[in-house]
Design a protein around this nucleic acid. Structure first.
Lengths: 341, 341
DNA sequence: GGGTGCAGTTAAAACGTTTTAATGGTCACA
DNA sequence: TGTGACCATTAAAACGTTTTAACTGCACCC
């Protein structure tokens, strides 16, 4: 009997509980939320009524009253996510797992909003009190929509637009790590491949690359490839570059989808990796590890990053003050077969 | 001006829109939802009022009235997920991505409930109108909780308990695929490693393994390892088996975390893979691909499986009739270095 | 005895939407 | 002219909480 609810029966409400316990609904609410003192004996009566009726609070009603959804949303910038396909999803999912765990430890659920054609529809149908935005582009459609909704937003990775806060992804250090590594293993002629989108980390990578190239006397070559062309686009671009520059002995390809494309081009050209050409990429995900040889990459410690971002967002949602900028653990180089023989 | 909302300003409601458009709130609701006919001219007035005020419907209020949260939850059986760590998360995340996409295409968001200590608290604070349950164990704590809440539940993988429906993960075919493959590449003495938990797919794997072993005259050996001991437990168990059975020339290890543990044991024993011992696992995820040599595994087509499950669940939520059992695309063997030289 | 303060409780309002039943108007048909 | 059907609209109720302000007793203090 007790605790059981028959199928189809209407769920018990706070008034049912109140009636059974012989108190008013307000007292039940106070007893359950603990917001006000309730007599010990009354509380006991309420508790047993709750158990007997199998009462579960109606979240929608609570949300309407309190104005909170107990939910945060994780968005990924549409364009790239689609373009980079599974790789970007890996990146996103790694963040999602950690963010969900952190959020739930604070009694908030994470809703996952994958890249989708119509961001506006997604926003409209999903209740949430805060948003996590993964590496937004300069003109990210979500930025405007979230701003219009006046909802706290935390970006993962440096953001151009107006966000409440952002967690650093250490673009500069990551770039330096990879560039210095390529130099250390002896590469002296390696181009940088980046996408054409307005991503902050492209800008940073390019800046560091050019600076370092100038220092060591390397002629810089920056190949820009539309992200939407995926692996194939990168392969074509690299093939062209190899033909024009046979002295090439390395490739710096931050976007992993483009990195595997580049590997394909190298195979076609009959060049050995890492013997003749060394290759390094940024995100140490499935693509990087599944390539043969596996690609040297960087451990961005996304779980820590996501936890930091989530906690910051929840602080904001709860109305606490919060810094506008959070540092991340320093990225660590993960050396693999593609740069060491 | 239009479409702009100043920060801190209270959000416009349907009443504000109604007043501005000179109609009643009910008409606004009808115009927006399209549930009833509304004169073309009034609809236009309402639309422009909506734009001017930057009106966004309050989901909580709508949810309270309609009884729908526009949300489904994805749960993963607690014990295993924790035990198998990142590998299980990979599995879960692959499903999550596809489920989220499918759900969103039907205007429903996916909330991600990662393995957590207190499942009951998770359930209480998260509003959802349906649940997706990944490979529940026989006594899965979520099963009871979801049943008590009387919420439609769809399991991914055969389920023991009471769920509204389940989508097959083709345990038998998967087992056959792997067993036959090991036999085909010449293995004649390979034990089966499985966990101790009450998972349906352990039972099926064991049954098929014993049957096939009897057919080909192989002495069956089933090693059961507590999932909670992870890689190390599997490594110890395999080391022991190898010492007692030097004739071992293969390993069938469905759980990928245990498979990588087994690989470690083989390395320690100085046995070459695939030369002396062939290894096969089930889930073709990061662990399988990142191992050296990469592990032969099975493509379970989780994206299709997740999409099927999600659509079934949403049908149930919308009150449609729905089959209790869905087939999945047949699993395909992915042959890798661990079984072919 | 009249005020003050406190602790526990309550009645009623409020949150913002959807839905129901009722309303007035127009049109076609007898 | 009356009758019914239909259409667009509306007023009001309903959803299930939380919160506010009021209200009890009751003890304590001048």
């Amino acid at each position: 009997m007790s605790g059981q609810v028959k199928t189809g029966q209407k769920r018990a409400t706070v008034v049912d509980v109140a009636r059974l316990a012989g108190v008013s609904p307000g007292t039940v609410s106070n007893a359950l939320s603990g917001k006000r003192r309730v007599d010990e004996e009354t509380r006991a009566r309420i508790d047993s009524a709750v158990r007997e009726l199998g009462y579960v609070p109606n979240m929608a009603a609570r949300g309407m009253r309190t104005g909170r959804a107990n939910t945060i949303a994780l968005f990924s910038s549409m364009a790239t996510a689609v373009a980079a396909g599974p790789s970007k999803l890996g990146f996103l999912m790694e963040i999602a797992g950690s963010a969900a765990l952190t959020a739930l430890s604070r009694n908030v659920a994470l809703v996952l909003v994958p890249p989708i054609r119509d961001p506006e529809a997604a926003l409209r149908n999903v209740p949430f009190d805060g948003a996590l935005l993964v590496e937004p582009t300069r003109d990210d459609p979500f930025l405007a929509l979230l701003a219009a909704r006046d909802v706290p937003t935390v970006a993962i990775g440096e953001a151009h637009g107006a966000v409440s806060a952002h967690v650093d992804l250490n673009y500069a250090q990551t770039a330096d790590l990879l560039i210095d590594h390529l130099l250390n293993v002896g590469s002296r002629n390696f181009p940088l491949l980046i996408g054409t989108g307005a991503r902050r980390y492209y800008e940073v990578f390019e800046a560091r690359y050019r600076q370092r190239a100038a220092q060591v006397g390397m002629t810089p070559a920056v190949l820009r490839i539309d992200e939407a062309e995926g692996e194939a686009g990168a392969a074509r671009s690299v093939a062209r570059h190899l033909a024009a520059h046979p002295e090439t002995d390395g490739l710096l390809v931050p976007l992993d989808a483009q990195a595997t494309g580049a590997m394909e081009a190298l195979r076609q050209a009959g060049l050995s990796v890492p013997g003749e050409v060394r290759v390094a990429t940024r995100y140490d995900g499935l693509r990087a590890r599944a390539e043969t040889p596996a690609l040297t990459a960087v451990d961005l410690q996304l779980d820590t990053v996501a936890a930091t971002a989530t906690n910051a967002l929840l602080d904001l949602v709860e109305g606490m003050e919060c810094r506008a900028h959070f540092a991340s653990p320093l990225p660590r180089l993960v050396v693999r077969g593609s740069t060491e023989g």
